[in-house]
Design a protein around this nucleic acid. Structure first.
Length: 275
DNA sequence: GGGATTGTTTAAAT
DNA sequence: GATTTAAACAATCC
């Protein structure tokens, strides 16, 4: 499940192979996966040079010449990767972009939850989801980070996952950063003192950077731009470790639904708030 | 077959 | 308005 570090890793890999290349053609292999017809998409991207590949929140964005922006959201099982011409797309590859050197970019998604859309510059700015995204966790200063939560009575986990509050955090890095800061996911944001929020800021940035350095986490389906899995899943402290011992105190880890999502935590290291 | 899994939107309830 | 819960979305796994 690609979150910030995974999309960041893909963007870096894609940038190194696609920047400066020109898209020759787009092939839509699954009808309905992109709005409009294959012909319309292909006509708009053909002949466009890839100027850059970047990440915003969990979105992977290829900036094309002519103020066009190819946007991917990978959701749960989506992948974007580059192959040599000899590799045949499997049945879950929904869109193929052919580059001028023969390499091909595959948009693959086993469950078809993800999407691929083409925007002009003004269209992407007017897109409510994009316009409403909160600040990037790796760019925000500690004081500003703490201010995001002031006066908020919602649970900290719910706000960490809220893309309008903070962009790019999903279930993995929410749980990992809360564990590192010894905060129970059900704690109300307003009950967390500012110095503790600043610790959360530091730990969140640290876990994101460590994950990026490790090439992301491949808990299930994630692969980088070259089809390779990441390594950070081997360093999870809590995510997916229900009933395994807490690495700090040895207590068996618990799970609880918070903000509608399974949250894994240590009931000793992260004491639960009053209900 | 029921429940869980992913992120996001939308609707309804509190 | 803020917050919470649930459903819906597609497909798969246990």
């Amino acid at each position: 499940m690609p979150e910030l570090p995974e999309v960041e890793t893909i963007a870096g890999g894609l940038a190194s192979v696609a920047c400066g290349r020109t898209i020759m053609e787009a092939v839509v292999r699954t009808p309905g996966i992109v709005p409009g017809t294959q012909e319309a998409l292909s006509r708009r991207v053909a002949g466009r040079t890839v100027l850059g590949v970047r990440r915003r929140a969990k979105l992977l964005i290829m900036d094309l010449a002519g103020d066009l922006h190819l946007v991917f959201h990978l959701k749960m099982t989506g992948r974007v990767w580059v192959t040599h011409p000899a590799v045949d797309p499997n049945k879950h590859v929904h869109v193929v972009f052919l580059l001028d050197n023969g390499d091909r970019i595959f948009f693959e998604d086993q469950r078809k939850f993800g999407y691929c859309r083409l925007f002009s510059g003004s269209e992407i700015e007017a897109w409510p989801f994009y316009a409403g995204l909160g600040p990037e966790p790796l760019k925000i200063a500690p004081q500003e980070f703490a201010a995001l939560f002031s006066g908020r009575t919602a649970r900290i986990k719910s706000l960490l996952l809220d893309q309008g509050v903070l962009a790019g955090i999903g279930n993995i890095y929410a749980d990992e950063s809360l564990f590192r800061t010894s905060i129970h996911p059900r704690t109300r944001a307003s009950e967390i003192p500012v110095p503790r929020l600043m610790e959360l800021h530091r730990n969140l940035q640290a876990v994101l950077r460590e994950a990026i350095d490790a090439g992301g986490s491949s808990f299930r389906d994630y692969r980088d731009a070259y089809g390779q899995p990441g390594q950070f899943q081997e360093r999870f402290s809590v995510y997916g470790r229900k009933n395994q011992p807490c690495e700090r105190c040895g207590t068996s880890l618990d799970t609880e639904k918070v903000a509608g999502r399974t949250s894994t935590f240590c009931r000793i290291c992260q004491p639960p708030p009053e209900r």
